[in-house]
Design a protein around this nucleic acid. Sequence first.
DNA 1: TATTGTTATACTCTATAACTATA
DNA 2: TATAGTTATAGAGTATAACAATA
Lengths: 164, 164
Amino acid sequence: MKARSTPTRQEPATASDILDEGPLQPILGYRLAQATVVTNRIFESQVAEVLDLRKVEYTVLTLVQQNEGLTAAQLASELAFTAPNMAAWIDRLSRRGLVEREQHSRDRRALHIRTTAAGRELAKRATQAIRAAEAQVLSVLSPGEQLMLFELLQKVASCRAQVK
Amino acid sequence: MKARSTPTRQEPATASDILDEGPLQPILGYRLAQATVVTNRIFESQVAEVLDLRKVEYTVLTLVQQNEGLTAAQLASELAFTAPNMAAWIDRLSRRGLVEREQHSRDRRALHIRTTAAGRELAKRATQAIRAAEAQVLSVLSPGEQLMLFELLQKVASCRAQVK
DNA sequence: TATTGTTATACTCTATAACTATA
DNA sequence: TATAGTTATAGAGTATAACAATA
């Protein structure tokens, strides 16, 4: 359990409940971080601890499954990862028999990464677990709000090329 | 610079440009992570590298400044940090002369944390830098959309008590 | 007994440098 | 000369255990 200091009021939920967020309020990075606390906890308790699958591993597994014959370079670039780290993660998944490396069709330097049957099965179970758990949280939003939130986040993410 | 693999198309911005996100699309944690790539880069280039201030340090500094006589326990609880880490961060800020620890009024175990003049000045500059940089990204959204995004993120964050 | 703050320490995740094989 | 993938390694950041002082 987590230590909670409740000076005079009881059971606060977010920083904004006790603290004055002041200048942080209109900062997108801060708002994203606060929201991420919730999704991280969901992932941790519903996927990481249950299926022994890290966030990155789940993402890689799912992207590889969805995009036949993806290369490590493509994955690294799109997930904003460095090449060495990408290699390490793929290695981990490979050692667990969740993905396999395969000779690239034309470029003999590159490798196609493919999911195994076990990998696909695990990814599927993970997706179901996350969606079910997130649905509970998302239920504080109306269906319209949920759609709106996803679209707005998508728009923000699409600015990636424009920064740095 | 960053390596970019452009097989047949040119200059992709997000994973969704090249890759099929498939089951990841409706996962809030993934969408938040993708959007966070943008805000992290902004913070890194506009604050961390310029003012030598980490994300956590900036947040702590600003919250302490905004909430007179905050204790470490309160900060840790509200930012979802462990107590030992909170102590280390406060220590770092203290050694740089940005915050000071002060005897608590009633509880002799606790300490009030206060910003110094230098701390307030740095926090102010950091806030200005972030807001200016984020404004460019946020300009892809209409004022109404910006407001909506912040409100929806706030709602998600407020579910923190409900998870774990 | 519980809580505040701290030290020591280990683990996870990410980044850089340097290398090979191929383009 | 550049790129794909890898190894080795160092650095952030975070977590757990154990402690002293106080409530």
